[in-house]
């Protein structure tokens, strides 16, 4: 029962976070891109719940859900989106780049496909050091057309890395439909070419995702190597906040996917079969809303980074006078 509630809490938090953050982007005139993961919550919630806190995660431009699932504090996330000092990266990364190494979130990546080998590297560490950790990489259908995905899968397979490739197939890469860009119907079939299991899972069903991820995690921990999971899902918004998706997809398609929205469906399931009460869920939702409103307050109160912050952290360790201020020797 507790894990059922956890899944719901996670999905509901992601949904509300995306909704509220999207409004803030407009109200605060933040120009950074926000790629909402609304619609895909079941995948992030289901996979992340199968992980331990010290397992690793790499993510993409559409990474808020993954970060929330992995346990990054929403205050840090909201302030990062605002570009404030209180943010997860002190405002240096913004919405597309949230990281919190204390919970194994190694960073969200703005370059499509590039986060995938990084998860393999984290998994290689776990293998070499015998730590029993696993690593997960989330990526989209579009990313599966990058050569680096294929190289990563092959390496993971020949080295039996404890890594899980989670493809969130939301049918589009920006405006490009995956039935044009991908040569096969099920992306999971690509796993065969790298002799690893390729699982197809209903990405609108958090329990199905959770079960599938749990199996992959035990395979990885048992030393049996990588798994590829394709979660069939849908992003409800445009590619990013300013994109009108009806340029390239139909409203009837959107309508059909919203009919199977994972959140209300799972709520009904919890009430009818999961032993939850309406009051309990109402209270939880209220509390989540309040937390996110508090995260917005936190972000608003946090100051913008001072100009001195600009040159900090380019390196861990580097002679400061060689960072080359704007105007050369004259200053």
């Amino acid at each position: 029962m507790e894990h059922l509630l956890d899944i719901y809490r996670s999905m509901f938090t992601i949904r509300k976070f995306e909704e509220i953050a999207s409004r803030q982007i407009v109200d605060e005139r933040i120009r950074g891109l926000l790629h909402s993961s609304e619609g895909q919550e079941a995948v992030a919630a289901g996979v992340c719940l199968a992980l331990d806190q010290n397992d690793y995660l790499t993510s993409t431009h559409r990474g808020h859900g993954h970060a929330i699932g992995k346990g990054v504090h929403i205050n840090l996330m909201m302030a990062e989106i605002f570009g404030k000092v209180g943010g997860a990266n002190k405002g240096k990364g913004g919405s597309m780049h949230i990281a919190d190494s204390t919970v194994g979130m190694l960073g969200a990546n703005g370059i499509v496909g590039s986060s995938i080998p990084l998860a393999c590297g984290a998994a290689l560490k776990a293998k070499i050091m015998g730590t029993n950790q696993v690593a997960v990489s989330f990526f989209g259908d579009g990313a599966t057309n990058q050569g680096v995905l294929h190289e990563s899968m092959n390496l993971a397979s020949i080295w039996k890395l404890p890594v899980i490739f989670v493809c969130e197939n939301n049918l589009y890469a920006q405006s490009t439909p995956s039935d044009y860009s991908v040569s096969i119907e099920n992306i999971a079939d690509r796993a065969k070419g790298y002799s690893m299991p390729g699982e197809i899972v209903d990405g609108m069903d958090p329990l199905a995702v959770f079960d599938c991820a749990k199996n992959a995690v035990s395979r990885a921990r048992d030393g049996d190597g990588p798994t590829f999971i394709e979660a069939k899902t849908y992003r409800y918004r445009g590619h990013f906040l300013g994109d009108n998706p009806l340029r390239y997809r139909s409203d009837s398609e959107e309508f059909d996917w919203k009919k199977i929205d994972p959140i209300p469906r799972f709520r009904v399931f919890l009430l009818e079969e999961g032993g939850a009460t309406k009051d309990e869920l109402d209270d939880m939702e209220l509390a989540i809303n309040e937390n996110i409103v508090r995260a917005v307050e936190f972000a608003k109160k946090s100051p913008f980074p001072s100009h001195e912050e600009l040159e900090k952290d380019v390196y861990d360790n580097y002679p400061k006078d060689q960072l080359n201020r704007t105007v050369s020797s004259m200053e």
């Binding site: 933040i30 405002g91 240096k92 780049h97 980074p305 600009l310 960072l323 704007t326 105007v327 004259m330």
Partner: peptide
Amino acid sequence: APPVRVTLPDVPAPASRSL
């Protein structure tokens, strides 16, 4: 006088508007 370069510092682009 020595030539002067007006360039960006050797720092990656930050997100925050203040930076």
